[in-house]
Design a protein around this nucleic acid. Structure first.
Lengths: 145, 145
DNA sequence: CTGTTTGCAAAAAATTTGCATGTTC
DNA sequence: GAACATGCAAATTTTTTGCAAACAG
C-alpha cells in the first residue's frame, strides 16, 4: 500500500494546470491545492477547505472546475455511494480500495496492477483507474459484532 | 468477458429473497425482476421498468428496497458518475469495466481476478466487487477524432 | 395480531444552469 | 479586446424521510 503525495508548491500547481492546457485562475489553483492537501475529497469538502480564504469560491465554480479537471485528465472522479463523488489528482492507474461502509479510500499500488490492467488494454480498453469495493478491516470487524 | 444471467423464474426470485432473510413482498419481487432483466440499471430505470405494472411501485420503495438488497448482499451498488448509482444482482466478486464516457458497464471474469483479490483479502479487506474506470474501445476511437 | 412495508408528498442533498460581471491571455 | 471564467441564485436531479394506511407472517 503506498501513500503517494503529488505536486507541492504553488509553482508546481501552476505548471500542472498549464501542462494540461487549462487556463490558470486563482480559484483553479485553490481547487488544485485542496485536491493536493485533502485525501480523496468530495466537492463539498473542497468547497469547505477553500471557504475560509478570500475571495471565497462559489460552489458552482468548484463543480465546474472539477468537471474541467476531470475532462482534461488532471483529476479522476471516484463515484461514491448515494450520490457523492470523490476526486483525486490523477497519477498513473492504480487501485483504490473503497470501503462501502465507512467510505474511506485506501490507495494500493503493487505488481499485480500491471498484469491485471494489461488484460484490459490488450482488448482495447483504455484504463483510467480501478476501484475495488470492500469492507475495510475495521468495518469487517465491526460488522461481525 | 462473460455475460452472466442470474435467476430467472418467479420462484427463483422468491427463494433468492428468502435465502437472504428478506421478507417477500410484491414490490420487492418486482424490483428483483427488474434487476434481473435490465443491465446494471439505475434506481430510476428500475422505477420506469415497474411503472407500467399495477399496482405501480412508489419511488421511495424502489430506493428503500435497493438499500435493503444491498445491505443484505443481494445486490451490489455500483456508483456512477455525477451522482447516479447502478445496481447489479450480486454474483461472486468479478470485474466491471465501467466506461466513463458512455456509461456502459462490461462484466469481466477471468483468472486474473482471483490473484488480484487474494492480495486484498490477505490484508483483511473483504472484497465485494471491482470497478475499473475505462474508455471502452468505441469511445477511445471516438475521442481520437 | 404485531411489526414491517408501502405510498404519497414534502424535504434534503448534490449538482447544474442562466446570466450579468470580472478576468486571463 | 475577445474569449473565457466566475458568482449568485434559481432550477434540476437524485435520494431520503415522516406518517397514516395496508400487508406479511
Amino acid at each position: 500500500m503506498s501513500r503517494r503525495r503529488p505536486p507541492s508548491s504553488t509553482e508546481d500547481l501552476l505548471s500542472l494546470l498549464k501542462s494540461h492546457g487549462v487556463k490558470v485562475t486563482h480559484q483553479r489553483l485553490l481547487v488544485a491545492e485542496a485536491l493536493m492537501k485533502l485525501d480523496h475529497p468530495t466537492a463539498s469538502e473542497i468547497y469547505e477547505f477553500i471557504a475560509s480564504r478570500a475571495p471565497a469560491v462559489g460552489v458552482a465554480t468548484v463543480y465546474r472546475t472539477l468537471r474541467l479537471f476531470t475532462k482534461t485528465g488532471l483529476t479522476r472522479e471516484i463515484s461514491s455511494m448515494r450520490g457523492l463523488s470523490r476526486y483525486e489528482l490523477y497519477q498513473r492507474p492504480h487501485i483504490n480500495l473503497h470501503c462501502i461502509a465507512c467510505g474511506h479510500i485506501t490507495d494500493f499500488d503493487d505488481s499485480h496492477t500491471k498484469g491485471l490492467f494489461s488484460v484490459f488494454t490488450r482488448r482495447g480498453f483504455r484504463v483510467l483507474g480501478c476501484d475495488v469495493a470492500v469492507l475495510c478491516p475495521s468495518c469487517t470487524a465491526r460488522s461481525r459484532r
